[in-house]
Structures are given as C-alpha cells and as structure tokens.
Amino acid sequence: MEAVRDLSFQIGKGELVGFLGPNGAGKTTTLKLLSGLLYPTAGSLSILGHVPFKRETEFLKKFSMVMGQRTQLWWDLPARETFRLNQKIYEIPDPVFRKRESELIELLELEPLVNLPVKKLSLGERMKAELACALLHEPEVLLLDEPTLGLDLVMQKKLRHFIAEYNRRTQSTILLTSHNMNDVQELCKRVMIIDEGQLIYDGDFDRIIQHFAPDKVVAISSSQPIPMETLKDLGQILSHNGASAKMEVPRQSVSRVLEQLFKRIPLLDLTVEELPIEEIVRRVFLRTRSQSQSQKNLFAPGEWEIQEQEKKGMRERPLPEP
C-alpha cells in the first residue's frame, strides 16, 4: 500500500516546520521515513547529509523523535532513570549532561516530577518528561509527532511555548505534525499541508489564508430581531439567531456589505474576521479529495453549510503553487 507519494521538500537548518493533515494523510509515515523507521520503496531522502535508513550512529546522535502518547520512559521508574540511560546511550559527558538536565527540568517545570515513577504522572506531565528525555543530547533535528495529542489547553500552551523557545535557543530544526491547528499556527512560520500522501501546500502559514480563503466572516448583533430577508443578498448566512447573525462575505465586497448593514440594521456590534483556519484547511482537503476522486461527492455537511454554487466555485479556484 502506498502511504505517501510524490512528496518532495527541503527544510533548512533552524526552521520550525509544521505538517498539517487529517488522520491517515501520511504525516506519521513521512516522519517515520525521515527517522529511518520505514524503508522507502522509491525515491531518496537525506538529513544532515545522512540517509536515515542506514542508521549511522553519527546521524542518530544528532536526531530525536517524540511520538505523542508513546513513551520511551520506563513506566515503573522515575523519569530521571531513563534520562541517565539516554546519557549513556548518547554518550553525553557528565558535566554537560548535568547542565542540560537541570536546564530542561527548570524550563519544563519538572522538578518534583522526575523523581516519581512515570506511571504516576499525568499525560501532560509525562509528555514534558518525554520531551526532556528526547532533548538531552541536544539533537540538531527534532521530529515531533502529535506532541499535544490528548493534552488540556493549558498544557498545550506550555508545550508550544517551550518548543518555540527551544528552537530559538538551540537553532535546531524542528518538524512537527499535528492535526491541532493551534500548534502549527503558533509555532510554525512555514507549513506543509499533506493529504492522501501528497503535498498540497508548502509555504508561509500566513499565506494560507490569502491563498485559500477569499472570504471573510462578518458577525453582527442588533438591538432588535434581524429579518433574514435583509441579509440574503449581502452574503452567505452562516448562522442566524434572532438579533445576531454571522455571514460569509467575499473579501473584495466587505466594505460594500458593511455600508449596507449600517443602512439597514440598527447595529450594536460588528466584527470582521478571517475564516477559522480549520475551516480553510478543511476546504483545502475537500477540494483535493473531490479532484482526486473526480466527480464523487464527498462533501459532508459540516458546521459550515456549503451550498451548491459554492462547491462549484471552489472547484474552479486555482491550485496552490507547489
């Protein structure tokens, strides 16, 4: 079975790149290829001048991988023991090891936790210990597979903050996969969107919005009920709830629509926002699917109602540059 194909990209030193895609898109497969866990049937790849599958010690020492919800920490023992084990495995000299260990423990707020058996830690605490463990040898390349999977929001934020900080401080190259948009949005300047094993976008995160989302969301609330009819001709209504409503408006006609709204409705509040990035990416996936599967209708009605003419419009939009 082919999990990825026609996937080619280059990542420079010190970059923090996000891999985005729905489940089963081939994100993990790509990471496994990069880490040498999978043997590519065709094509070539090289990291730091090494071919991953050859598993040269020199390469392995410069690289690390963290897999969300998996652990290399010994379950019944304090995380500190596994740290020591990795010290021996990566041949880290004692003073260097002590310095890095205490740094990581401080940065990740692991102080009492590293001395408790790993099985007693919460998922988030374990993930932090896991990261510390993977970073002890200060890898030049770090692969993070769903690092925030299953964590609560506070913990997600802490981890993201740490990763960004780490990248800045050590100038290490970090590749991160996630289906959590916030991870990528906050951390990565560059993002690669992958679906069905193919790269469908590779570029700046900020440009995704321009690239895929020609529409903006206008939200209004009024002092009195808004009749549907008054909005109908202005844009596509996303939600309508008595005295408040949300609609999607083409970028270029935003000012015209606002003008009309002021005229027609006694407004209390008005905001203009970008489409949520999840929605944009969802649309990107929908489009590639509908293309690769020709005319098969794969549009599942989601929270965003998509009308017939909208679908047609989306198909006619140009493909993103490779």
Binding site: L37, L60, M65, R70, Q72, N86, I89
Partner: peptide, 13 residues
C-alpha cells in the same frame, strides 16, 4: 505492538 521498538531503532546503539 506498543511502539517501543521505534524508540530502540532511533537510538545510536
């Protein structure tokens, strides 16, 4: 089955 093998394979031993 539990994925520990992946960790062994990416270590320099």
């Amino acid at each position: 089955r539990e994925g520990d093998m992946d960790f062994y394979l990416i270590q320099p031993v």
